[in-house]
């Protein structure tokens, strides 16, 4: 039954894909072709030039195959392989994200264990949390004076909040009974933190990490459009300036795929620490 349903769902997915792509292909491959001779006026207005438009799926597919066959070529600042560009982006996300984790998880731990700190820091967290990470960009550029580091900082600032809040929440809501077990066993605070609180809060912490990686991947594209130079965000913007929409659509799909992989990695990690109470 279950197997049957999986099969049917897969089939339905494929049918929907074919229908959508087919409709897209058909709507574009019936272009308005100027028939006959062009008038002088039309020639002046550039009607003889190939029309820019959203390319059909077949063109994008061909373009994708070409790009994917040489993902890491580097032919100057404005012509790099897609793999290289994605690599820059992933590296920035990782740098900012790991820095944020290194700060947010220990700090969240302390906040979660201390009701006093929790109350004292809560107003700041509540104010800082809703700020769009890109709003920090001008300040980051001015202070850091390096566009690439500024992008990393923006990732850092956007991924810190979900991890901080989830860690504090997870630590604060560890069951009293489990803490009492640790107390009656005369465990030190440090030992309690590592043997009881950390495993108990790990699923909540990882949920925060999963939310954070998703937000980071959303933000890096926008950040790189602003700072330029390298990365998938810059690539999209650059191809838009070149009016190469096949590349833009291809890049959009690649962004989605990489985001999916990042999410899947963290989903897998949270499966490792999950427990059934």
């Amino acid at each position: 039954m279950l197997h049957n349903q999986t099969l049917r769902a897969t089939l339905l997915s494929l049918v929907l894909l074919v229908l959508a792509l087919g409709a897209w292909e058909l709507s574009i491959s019936a272009p308005l072709t100027a028939s006959g001779e062009l008038s002088e006026y039309e020639q002046l207005m550039g009607a003889s030039a190939s029309r820019a438009g959203v390319p059909p799926p077949s063109v994008i597919l061909a373009h994708a195959m070409d790009e994917l066959s040489r993902p890491f070529y580097d032919a100057g600042p404005n012509d790099k392989g897609i793999g290289l560009q994605l690599g820059y982006s992933v590296a920035r996300v990782m740098a900012g994200y790991l820095l944020a984790a290194m700060l947010a998880i220990p700090l969240g731990f302390v906040i979660g264990m201390s009701p006093l700190l929790n109350r004292a820091l809560d107003p700041y967290i509540q104010i800082l949390k809703p700020i769009s990470p890109l709003a920090w960009m001008p300040l980051a550029l001015f202070v850091i004076k390096d566009s690439s580091l500024s992008a990393i900082f923006v990732i850092f600032i956007c991924s810190i909040w979900p991890m901080l809040i989830n860690t504090a929440f997870g630590v604060a809501s560890v069951k009293r009974d489990w803490l009492n077990v640790a107390r009656t066993l005369e465990m030190s605070r440090l030992r309690t933190a590592f043997t009881v609180i950390l495993p108990a809060a790990a699923p909540t912490i990882l949920t925060g990490m999963r939310i954070a990686i998703g937000i980071s991947w959303l933000v890096i594209v926008a950040a790189e459009m602003l700072v330029g130079g390298t990365g998938i965000g810059y690539y999209v913007w650059n191809e838009w300036n070149n009016l190469d929409l096949a590349s833009v659509v291809f890049a959009i799909i690649m962004i989605g795929l990489v985001g999916m992989v990042l999410d899947a990695v963290l989903a897998q990690a949270s499966r490792l620490v999950r427990y059934q109470d």
Partner: peptide, 18 residues
């Protein structure tokens, strides 16, 4: 304060589920 000299069995077993 609590001590290893006094063991406790809680109402709801309180085992660590992981």
């Amino acid at each position: 304060g609590p001590s290893l000299d006094r063991g406790v069995i809680f109402q709801n077993h309180s085992l660590l589920p992981w």
